[in-house]
Write a protein that binds this DNA or RNA. Structure first.
Lengths: 192, 192
DNA sequence: ATATATAGTATCGACTCGATACAATATAAA
DNA sequence: TTTATATTGTATCGAGTCGATACTATATAT
């Protein structure tokens, strides 16, 4: 019974988010999906800013994503740069115009209004609940987590205070570890 | 800062729901939106099963909804019945085929899997957090709540144990009060 | 009786989305 | 090295979503 209640609430909440995103994006002629991709690209690290990463994040096909990206590029909200090592892949950067757009739209007015009236404690509890549910969904269904680098099992802090990714075998900047990574995997809480 | 965290989590959760709904609906050739409308219609009362109510619920335009409903009707998942009093309005009923489809798809497998591993206490906390957030969004942005009849301020229990809606001025069946109503308004918690 | 509001449908154009086909590059195997 | 296979990305088609507009029919207010 609780599963149904949770599902229904998530469904309703998603609907409210969509209404909110549609409203926010409409000012700039952006669809909810376009706004979401722009938002994702503004938050992800250098391993996760490719069309394929966006494809995995949205759970769509690469063809679909390719088209949406073309729209964002036409609107001068993102730019495309070829990878130096792998000539197949492209890196997508949010332009100054795109960043400015995001700053004025996300989080949307509706969510700002709603969170304002909640106490600090309520906000923390809500965020924890959302986090538990998302983690559960990802774990039990073997999905990619798309979490921030610092919470990843591959991330290790070296003795000199810098960070290192054990998957891509590369050092990480301090600014990187707060960004979303497509290779992110949740830490094992069990004792090693 | 918490507002951003909550917004990002809701965005991610919505994406997971969409992936889940797409997967569940694909078996029957249904789009996520079509599945959601079908789900809504299976849960709403006799005042809320019209195209306009669905329009308000989804926050779309009536033209858009009209098209989607046509698809569901073509697939024999819903039927349309003219209102006896108001000849402009139509009532939408989920067919047996539609009900059976919903039973096997909602809640989606992904959510069932995720909720299974959560404790009863965790489920309650998550549901409470979601409810608080949804209520906050609705209140602060003056949106329609689409809650269940029994939690509505217009619902009153008569001395003989039956229920009555003070808005539409009609008695309510015991089965009705657990259904979604488009006229739903949250109760005033303040002393009158 | 007339004006206005409401419920719903029809149609257009922009966009999403999955499927398929294709080109270019990278990697593995022979 | 050559060949096969995998991966990244683009192009194109058809079905469907979505908002905007125009329209019909009915209901309600004046």
């Amino acid at each position: 019974m609780n599963t149904s209640n949770i599902y229904n609430s998530v469904e309703r909440l998603s609907e409210l988010l969509k209404v909110s995103a549609r409203q926010a994006g409409a000012i700039y002629g952006l669809q909810p999906v376009q706004l979401e991709i722009l938002h994702y690209l503004s938050q992800c690290n250098q391993f996760s800013d490719t069309p394929m990463a966006v494809t995995e994040y949205l759970g769509q096909t690469k063809g679909t994503v390719s088209q949406t990206l073309k729209v964002l590029e036409t609107k001068a909200l993102i730019t495309k740069h070829a990878d130096e090592n792998d000539k197949r892949t492209a890196h997508l950067k949010v332009t100054a115009k795109g960043k400015q757009l995001l700053q004025t739209t996300i989080p949307t007015e509706m969510f700002v209004n709603a969170c304002e009236v909640l106490s600090e404690q309520q906000q923390i509890e809500i965020e924890q609940g959302l986090h538990t549910l998302i983690t559960g969904l990802i774990k039990t269904n073997n999905m990619k987590s798309f979490g921030i680098c610092s919470s990843c099992r591959y991330n290790s802090k070296l003795s000199d205070g810098t960070y290192f990714c054990n998957l891509v075998k590369q050092p990480l900047e301090n600014t990187d570890i707060q960004l979303i990574c497509r290779e992110h995997e949740v830490e094992n809480k069990e004792p090693t």
